[in-house]
Amino acid sequence: MTATCPAPTAAPDPAPAAAFPIADTACRVVSNEPVNAEYRLLLAEAGPTALTAEAGQFFQLKCPPTTQDHPFLRRPMSVYRIDRQNGQIGFLYKVTGKGTRGLSTLVPGDRLEAIGPLGLGFTLPAGTKHVLLVARGVGLATLTPLVQMARAAGAEVTAILSARNPAMVMSRDELAAQGARVIEVTDTAGDSDMAQVEALLRRLHAEQPFDFAATCGSNRLLQLTKALSAEWQIAGQAAMEAFMGCGMGMCYACVLPVTAPSGETIFKRVCREGPVFSIEEVQSW
């Protein structure tokens, strides 16, 4: 797909969202620019069904072929921005393989086919007052819309952003603009190891107790958040990733081992029973 392909107007869904809660939307790319040395932000005009997306849900994106790559399957991408006022959805992604290499070639006016919204997003328990977000790397993209959701529900949000170095800490401004307190920890500053992050979380919890925790993007942070949620007896959720076949619950390729209430390990589909799981059932990132 190139800039010369016909630019559709922003996707009028033929079916109302009520009849078909999921649509294959022909979105129109608005921008697709690097945000730092590794990540890019893709913004696209979307139709009403796509705009019903909630934090933690994802879309199956048709990644354009390039001269070297021909991605056959679609690629799941969690929604990073849900801008209902401007009719746009946004994705924050790192170019790591043939699908994301294809995505990086999209230019404004191009068509982006996106099936969604898919999967189960975050659910905040009623009355939540203080939300803890713990994210590393691209996990931040998935957790960012949760700030919007939590603030709308009247909760305060404290976000711990972990990264290799300060240049790689993404979304700090986006999170702050939405009203989150943002605390950065980085490998270069030497404060991102688990002992220090645990001490930080305990101090924050002592100052103003958390009653909900969410994490994405790192196994060590998942284990830490899981242990502290259990100790503090608060609800927690983890957003998980998997290489998917269909993203619509049909092929059963993206299964994740989780712990059932009985204690046995069972498989659940990341695309359908997830990608957001309760933190107790998740075993490892």
């Binding site: 056959f72 059963y252 390729a253 993206c254 299964v255």
Partner: peptide, 23 residues
Amino acid sequence: RQGTQPPRVAEFTDATLFSIGIP
């Protein structure tokens, strides 16, 4: 049945290789 151990899909240019194991 739970099906086979992941990974369960590999992708090619115009084909996929699935082993799901009939969950």
